[in-house]
Design a protein around this nucleic acid. Structure first.
Length: 592
RNA sequence: GGCUCCGUAGUACAAUGGAUAGUAUUAGGGUUUCCGAAGCCCUCGAUUCAGGUUCGAUUCCUGACGGAGCUACCA
């Protein structure tokens, strides 16, 4: 039972005894006491006055006195207006720290035997990763770590959108203008190489369109009249027909892209247990559509298109299959979802996809539920808002600022610069130094993205956003390095129990309390699918530690009992910093 | 037009319906005879507007005003 539950239960028991009324536990609200008041936890008694029929102050006084008398852990209390501030005994907190430090698995919940499949990344193979993918992969990776800590059995999967008109554009441009160049011959990273041909295609199509019409119309529509587009479309048909030459080229170019992606994934520190390819699943949807028709869940429209009527659910009629019988995006996704269920039998299926597709995922879930698939109840769309530049949405045409590799390179460069200026890396080999720049640079980038609630859009200004001061990854990493320095200096002092400690300083209590809140944070972040709660937690922890560090001597503490306790507290803080940052996919260095 | 999401200091973010709305950054000031100054301490500064529900509203409801997304037989 957690402390919160204990206090709630005791409160309910006391009310039962005093007033003979059962108080539902959720009417008892307990918060961490605000800084300006004395106390650790606060019970808000306003809702309880209905039962006690007394003033908030009287109610609180009585409750406080009874809790102090019966709980055994409440040392003192005070009442301000309707707020009952409880201070737990020092013994309670020292025991708590002892208990936590003795449990290496603290913060990891026992296996709940629920399977989660988490899809993230989902790149197109015709262009490199951009800043939107960064938010996606950082969120996805972190969410997977958090769910694992919360006891779930998580499998991360990727889906490659590796077919369609877009990749054919790259292929056509390469065929016509490539002269046999390769990533190896040019030294260009594979995904960028193929992406460059996609850009070339657009440039050439624009030129052709200009000579054709002399106008700068709506490119997206008008490009269809160019010969280049017609060639591209022919290539797509050939690909679909399995033309060996086209398929061979497609395989070759995609292999370049995958090689490039893999480099990015390695740098970013993300991974997948299974890859899905749109080219292998795009024609699988027919069966599920047929099933829907038989179950009378889907209907055939007069023109032959298959639709699902979602108007009773407040949505529209949604087409699932074209009149000519070919499938569309949603058809594939229905089939892919079922395929995943066959592969994994998961309890939850999480899609990490931008909020542009909110509607799509509502349709997907509803359609599967209407088909009677129980597992569809476990579908969750982890929707996140777009990353925008200060001038609006990042467009892939807008240039280099939005490119993921460039951005990562930029933060690594800044990390190197800062480290050379401020770092304590005497004796590092070049390799260790490079590794450190990576740790710090990516730490800054990941933390910057993950500290924001996923549904809120992020304004990203490449020049200003990557900071190393304040609420940032490097600040937390620095704090960890500081703890490590203390531990090195402390040597192998055996940390014993904390029984001999007389009293705790306020900042020591705050630290222990915050450490004891870790499991609540994990639980909440997992339930809400929100890594930003962990980001916020770990920042507060680092800040508290720095405050503690400045206020109190650790190695030079006045008594052995204090020194022993403070070293133990430092050690545990270091462990918690590392654990929490790991859940964000961020490493922490021992020196920086 | 309809639907969804978002509006908090100059800027970027917090706040299960709870106390005097927190934190970072910017600007200004202080702090290395003492464990790492990428730190710590101090000062300035905000809930878009109008109603409603409530003992209590940044939070919930209604409306207005701003911003974004969706409303594709594209993915």
């Amino acid at each position: 039972m957690t402390l919160e539950q204990t206090l709630k239960q005791s409160t309910a028991d006391i009310f039962k005894e005093e007033y003979g009324v059962d108080v539902p536990l959720d009417t008892v609200t307990i918060n961490i006491t605000k800084k300006e008041h004395e106390g650790d936890y606060t019970i808000v008694v306003f809702p309880l006055t209905k039962v006690s029929k007394k003033s908030p102050e009287q109610t609180a006084e009585l409750l406080g006195a009874k809790l102090q008398e019966k709980s055994g852990i409440v040392g003192k209390f005070n009442v301000i207006k309707g707020f009952l501030n409880l201070s737990l005994t020092d013994a309670y907190w020292t025991n708590k720290l002892k208990e936590i430090s003795g449990n290496a698995a603290y913060g990891t919940f026992p296996a709940n035997h629920k399977k989660v499949v988490l899809e993230y990344c989902g790149p197109n193979t015709n262009k490199p990763l951009h800043i939107g993918h960064l938010r996606n992969v950082f969120l996805g990776f972190s969410m997977a770590e958090i769910l694992k800590a919360a006891g779930y059995d998580v499998t991360k999967v990727n889906i490659y959108n590796d077919r369609g008109i877009a990749i054919c554009k790259s292929m056509i441009a390469y065929t016509k203008f490539g002269n046999g160049a390769t990533p190896q011959s040019t030294g260009i990273k594979g995904d960028h190489f193929v992406g460059d041909w996609y850009v070339t295609w657009n440039t050439k199509a624009k030129e052709e369109l200009q000579t054709l019409t002399g106008l700068k119309g709506e490119f997206d529509e008008d490009q269809k009249m160019t010969s280049l587009f017609k060639e591209t479309q022919e290539m797509l048909l050939k690909w679909e027909a399995g033309d060996p030459e086209v398929v061979a080229l497609w395989e070759k170019m995609n292999s370049w892209v995958y090689e490039g992606f893999q480099q990015s994934f390695n740098l970013l520190g993300i991974d997948f247990q299974k890859d899905y390819y749109e080219s292998k699943t795009y024609m699988l949807g027919k069966n599920i559509v047929e099933e829907g028709l038989q179950k009378n869940v889907f209907k055939k429209r007069a023109d032959g298109a298959v639709i699902v009527d979602l108007t009773p659910d407040g949505l529209d009629e949604k087409v699932l299959l074209r009149p000519d019988g070919t499938s569309i995006y949603i058809t594939q996704d229905l089939a892919t979802a079922e395929l995943r269920y066959k592969d994994f039998g998961m309890d939850k299926m999480i899609y990490v996809v931008a909020n542009e597709q909110d509607y799509h995922f509502k349709v997907l879930k509803l359609a599967l539920q209407k088909l009677g698939k129980k597992w569809a109840d476990g579908i969750y769309h982890l929707s996140y808002a777009l990353v925008e530049s200060p001038t609006g949405r990042f467009k892939s045409r807008e240039g280099k600022t939005a490119d993921a590799d460039d951005l990562a390179g930029e933060v690594l460069r800044i990390a190197e610069e800062k480290t050379k200026e401020l770092g304590k890396i005497e004796g590092f080999t070049e390799e260790q130094a490079q590794q450190l720049y990576k740790t710090i640079g990516l730490g800054a980038l990941k933390y910057f993205v993950l500290r924001v609630n996923p549904y809120k859009k992020i304004i990203f200004n490449p020049e200003e956003s990557i900071d190393f001061h304040g609420q940032t990854g490097p600040f937390i990493q620095y704090t960890h390095a500081r703890v490590c320095a203390i531990m090195r200096k402390a040597g192998d002092v055996a940390i014993t129990g904390f029984e001999n400690l007389a009293t705790l300083a306020p900042v020591e209590r705050e630290l222990v309390i915050h450490i004891s809140e870790y499991e609540n944070t994990i639980r909440s972040a997992a339930d809400k699918y929100d890594p930003s709660e962990v980001a916020s937690y770990v920042y507060t922890l680092a800040k508290l530690y720095n405050k503690f560090y400045h206020e109190l001597p650790i190695l030079n503490a006045a008594t052995d009992a204090e020194k022993n306790f403070r070293i133990g507290l430092s050690k545990q803080t270091g462990i918690m910093l590392k654990k929490a940052m790991k859940l964000l996919g961020i490493d922490v260095p021992e020196k920086m």
